[in-house]
Design a protein around this nucleic acid. Structure first.
Lengths: 341, 341
DNA sequence: CTGAAAGCGCTTACAG
DNA sequence: CTGAAAGCGCTTACAG
């Protein structure tokens, strides 16, 4: 067991309160005593005991606000399970979470939800939002007031967010290409169905995919890149149209939501046997299509862990006051096929 | 925040000590008072606060003994990192671990190492050992004395081990077949290189693999099953011999260690381009061969998590006294290819 | 059979 | 600028 505040106080010939002031930089200690204590902290190799901090901290509980565009978006279901699991594990330590769920990606809706969380007196924030100036400004103002913010699943630029927890989109795109390389039936004629060309993550998946195909010298041609707007119906109609237009397509690369819609178009055209379909994430509709052998593989990103770790990081920051070691906490790129899904 | 012992004591009109006796079944409480307190515990929805328990528990630290056949076996490197990460996170809660490393699978060596840990006064055990009666008996005697035991990476039969934490071997074998199905160049002529036909886990990987190939109706033939004894040199000579004998082999399925040796034989015969090689785990030698495109995919099992979770489970048991919810904690079956390794 | 007290390590008013 | 005391929730001797 390491040294305690009491041991340091005894060694310095002062009270525990004074040692506490120095350790936590609360000020109001004479320079000589401060130096003496600081030296002892180093010499005696003091590290604050978390169990002690936790118990004392029970007097001022911590509420963490989470804002997710999760309404009608099953991807976030596992993220929320992760958030709640963390909450359960930390509830005895005075932690609770408040989840604000939003539908879609309208910046104004997101800002409103974030402000509501702040009004509920949260002491930290964990958000998955859109990376636009209006949102950035709101968050920076909040951070300025001393409320730490983490970006989850989708990162934010131009903000002082503590860190990002989420998918490594470029790697996930590369991995899709790697799987395709193993399966390969050259020449590849690829139809790319992305969520939105305005989404950073989706674009990184496309770029990582294409770059890897090129690097590997795989003969391929991109028929077209179409947008599903993360919507099944749009995905269906646009995929159907594209399949008719490009009759040599033998691979569907679907970077985002709309999977069920796109696959329905393939099945209606009875093309599933000659088509290699790669998708992302493991939502129920996707899982079903993997089990049906329609989708060859789906690349996942540990959504549960994203929720789980975000809360742990914010709690650690709250207790220790130390910023997390990394700015990017990438979850693993996980390949799921029928047998291990 | 939930009810506390103090609140219950006040409500019952008794001291906190008495409530504590009832909660922890220490006995020596009059039946009427016991009933009254038990009712209040339910009514007031009392759950012990872990932070309080932890602080009080600091007076009697917990030492967890770990026995691993890890000498010269790089697979266990990540398991040990996981054990140590758990130790670090719990060190402020009075937890320390003691790792006994053994070379090989001689039951007597394992028993000796386990007894040494017991002699060092550990209060719980986490072992990866061989499933034979001599070892089972030693462990059962230890469990009888009140020291909980967890099996890690390799399960134990006929023991009252708390639970198993490790690979789902059958699923990992199935997954290998699933990957092969995607890559498939029928007809498959498969050479299986296993560690030892005496190892449960290795056999499950073979059975899961073959059964899945059959279920999927994939044309295949198993040339032979050879044993590497988890040794590179043995793997090399035996693979070389088999490759010469069966010149139509186009797939190597390596269930255990000896990967580098087997691959050396393939490369020496200059067969790597026409051979699909599937392996397990992500040790440095394997990783290098994946990056070199010699191995198509390696199926991993979250070794870090195995170490990490084992300690957490034992600690929870120590603090709460409640047995873990499951008897089998399977880590995920993780497919790694060049792009996501 | 039951209670009062001290303690785990840290923090927080409060008094001086 | 500094100290003494009380408290977070639980456990552990000890006294009766």
């Amino acid at each position: 067991m390491a040294a305690t505040i009491k041991a340091i106080a005894t060694a310095a010939g002062v009270s525990r309160g004074t040692v506490d002031r120095v350790i936590n930089g609360r000020g109001g200690v004479s320079p000589e005593i401060e130096q003496k204590i600081k030296k002892l902290i180093v010499d005696m190799n003091y590290t604050p005991n978390r169990a002690g901090k936790v118990l004392a901290g029970l007097k001022k509980p911590m509420k963490i606000g989470c804002m997710l565009p999760s309404i009608d978006n099953p991807f976030f279901y596992d993220v929320i399970l992760g958030l709640k699991q963390s909450e359960r594990e930390l509830s005895d330590f005075g932690v609770s979470i408040e989840i604000a769920q939003v539908k879609g990606f309208d910046p104004n809706d997101h800002i409103r939800a974030i402000k509501e969380l702040i009004a509920k007196n949260v002491s930290a924030l964990c958000v998955s939002t859109v990376d636009v100036p209006a949102v950035q400004n709101v968050l920076n103002a909040i951070i300025q007031k001393g409320i730490p913010v983490i970006s989850i699943n989708s990162d934010l630029s131009h903000t002082n967010r503590l860190c990002y927890v989420g998918c490594n989109y470029a790697e996930s795109g590369k991995t899709a290409a790697g799987i395709l390389n193993l399966i390969r039936k050259e020449p590849l004629e690829v139809l790319i169905i992305t969520g939105s060309l305005n989404m950073q993550g989706h674009n990184q998946r496309i770029n990582g995919f294409i770059k890897t195909l090129q690097d590997k010298g795989i003969k391929h041609h991109i028929a077209e890149v179409i947008e599903s707007m993360d919507d099944d119906h749009t995905a269906y109609t646009r995929t159907l149209c594209a399949l008719k237009k490009y009759d040599r397509v033998n691979c569907l690369y679907i970077t985002a939501a709309g999977v069920a819609g796109a696959c329905r178009a393939v099945e209606e055209q009875n093309l599933q046997d000659q088509m290699t379909i790669l998708t992302f994430d493991d939502v129920p509709a996707t899982r079903e299509l993997v089990l049906k052998n329609v989708i060859a593989a789906t690349i996942c990103q540990e959504p549960f862990k994203q929720g789980y770790e975000s809360i742990k990081i914010l709690y650690d920051y709250f207790v220790n006051g130390a910023a997390p070691k990394k700015t990017h906490y990438f979850t693993d790129t996980v390949i799921k096929i029928k047998e291990n899904i």
